[in-house]
């Protein structure tokens, strides 16, 4: 069975992660309920004739994907796989509201055709003139994780060598208000801002200098805290590891009551591992965990942990293996193992 290596990872987030070479050096504190990502100047990357129909998700996706390909020195991937929780929600809201406002009259097609979930993936393929395998997952907070599962399968089964994967979600304007309104009714709701972003990566069967290995990934639909501990131990065992093999854990704490999952995992299994959190910096959204994938890759490559993500004291040893754990409201759990080669 072939290994799966990460040749590049690029992220647009609510921090300056796209344009800056610094690794989360000067972070921005977000004290608002919602926050947009920090956009690059899209006009520098997308021709006006192509950009005129694109909303934020498509722009973020296309630009991030192209940079990921560039860093990996890849012109044409063998597959492009995208994950998105809400899809192109801006155009969805736009078309929906014009139906309601105009009572189904004088509607134009642009926002409808751009509203489908596969628009980002399609526009990446269109820009590259890439006829290869093209897939879009939309499975709540496992949308990005599904792209990794598909990509790993394509590589392991030798159906593809170089694969572009990514997760992207945009904030939109209306639906997010309703979601936040419901969240505000929770006794211990999400504390970090609602946000957006795009993370793309090139995965490959070829080992490169400094490449990081995607060792394993698994997803669990629903489980209690106690079951998660057992499932995590089993996941590590399948990969010939135990809790002591993990040097750092990256957790998806967002301040809500379900952070208890992370707390129990950290204290009961990984008291000696370096503990990293990130959602206070980039916010919460369906594909926020793709940022953790970017973060984990960078930590392993740079052997450095930015102070604003470090949650406990840093041990003075090298970081060879990182575990990512994310969940949402006690559902949509995912474990991802990244390793240096």
């Amino acid at each position: 069975m072939r290994n799966c290596y990460i040749h590049s990872a690029v992220s647009i987030s609510a921090q300056n992660t796209f344009a800056s070479e610094d690794f989360l050096l000067d972070v921005i504190a977000h004290n608002t309920k919602k926050t947009q990502a920090i956009y690059p100047n899209f006009k520098d990357f997308i021709a006006p004739i192509a950009a005129r129909r694109m909303q934020t998700a498509v722009k973020m996706g296309v630009v991030t994907a192209n940079k990921a390909l560039q860093i990996a020195e890849l012109n044409q991937p063998d597959a492009i796989i995208t994950g998105t929780g809400m899809g192109c929600i801006t155009d969805t809201e736009k078309f929906l509201n014009s139906i309601i406002t105009n009572n189904e009259a004088y509607l134009t097609p642009t926002s409808f055709i751009q509203s489908t979930h596969n628009t980002v993936c399609a526009q990446i393929a269109l820009g590259l003139k890439c006829n290869a395998f093209n897939n879009t997952y939309t499975h709540g907070n496992l949308s990005f994780e599904s792209t990794l599962i598909d990509a790993q399968l394509l590589i392991q089964q030798q159906e593809a060598k170089h694969i572009l994967v990514g997760g992207v979600d945009e904030l939109g304007t209306e639906f997010v208000e309703y979601v936040q309104m419901m969240e505000a009714k929770e006794s211990k709701g999400i504390k970090v801002p609602f946000s957006e972003g795009a993370t793309f990566a090139v995965l490959s069967s070829e080992k490169k200098v400094n490449a990081i290995k995607l060792q394993a990934i698994t997803t669990i639909l629903e489980a209690s805290k106690e079951e998660i501990i057992l499932k995590l131990e089993a996941f590590l065992a399948v990969n010939d590891m135990d809790a002591n093999s993990i040097d750092a854990i990256i957790l998806g704490n967002n301040g809500d009551a379900y952070d208890a999952y992370y707390e129990l995992t950290a204290t009961s299994l990984f008291p000696h591992a370096v503990q990293i959190e990130y959602k206070h910096l980039i916010g919460e959204f369906h594909t926020a965990s793709a940022f953790a994938f970017w973060l984990g890759t960078k930590v392993l490559q740079k052997q450095h942990i930015p102070k604003d993500v470090l949650k406990n004291s840093r041990q003075n040893k090298s970081i060879k293996t990182v575990l990512l754990y994310n969940q949402f409201k006690g559902k949509d759990h995912s474990f991802i193992l990244l390793k240096t080669c």
């Binding site: 004088y106 134009t108 097609p109 642009t110």
Partner: peptide, 17 residues
């Protein structure tokens, strides 16, 4: 101007409206 079939549909609605 490099317009395409979608633009044509947009213009059809403009003509009507």
């Amino acid at each position: 101007l490099c317009l395409d079939s979608i633009d044509a549909l947009e213009l059809i609605v403009m003509l009507d409206k």
